[in-house]
Amino acid sequence: MKPEHYRLPELSLRFVAVWRRNFLVWRKLAIPSVLGNLADPLLYVIGLGFGLGMLVKEVQGVSYITFLATGIVCQSTMNSATFEALYSAYSRLATQRTWEAILNAPMSLDDIVLAELVWAASKSVMSGVAILLVICLFGLTDAWSSLWVLPIIFLIGLAFAALGLCVTALAPSYDFFMYYFTLFITPMMLASGVFFPIEQLPPAVQSVAHFLPLSHAVELVRPLLLGRTPDDILLHCAVLLGVALVGYHVALVLCRRRMIK
């Protein structure tokens, strides 16, 4: 790796042109895309929520389905941003060589990786909004208080998009992403308080759970959707923002190493 690969990112609004490219593609497939993003979390909410909800009446003072739905918002935001930053970004990087084409224009990798980051987060907001709408229709949360959650969802999307882009920059093929899901995303999903409170975990796992970005996401989103004020708002936001910023720079360094010889 060369020293210039480590340069700090040069941020500019040039990324918007690349963001708009991705948006134009998405617009062509918007409805199946949103429905696809909606189906998975809904199955969890309905399946686990009603099924387990029969056994577990109340968790932290609310019905289990409410508890679960507020966690699923975070989990599906994470998934949406992760899938976009892995599979879709990898297609543009390696399969379609879209990045290569863009680099022939007056664009840098700094712009492209930033565009992918913001795009994946934007997409996670779009699917997040769809899920919030459904949750509101179910009467599981109050429509107006859930508006507060939108900027938080964007921040969660940024954090997981940044992590995903680091993996994409390292990936030799699509199969590589399986490791990331099995070793990181799935265990995190189970240990971050989406399905049950972190306090149920053994103490050793609990202490690890506090470092997981998804736990911080849940700590912010669940109270907001229940109409409460989250504790330690600044801490949770700072962790997510930190993951997004550091992740972006690491992803950029890895992409530079991969593409600039």
Binding site: L24, V25, K28, Q96, A101, N104
Partner: peptide
């Protein structure tokens, strides 16, 4: 500068 690469990297979605 304009560049015509050897490998097709047109945008297949468009």
């Amino acid at each position: 500068v304009g560049v015509v690469p050897q490998n097709d990297n047109l945008d297949p979605d468009f």
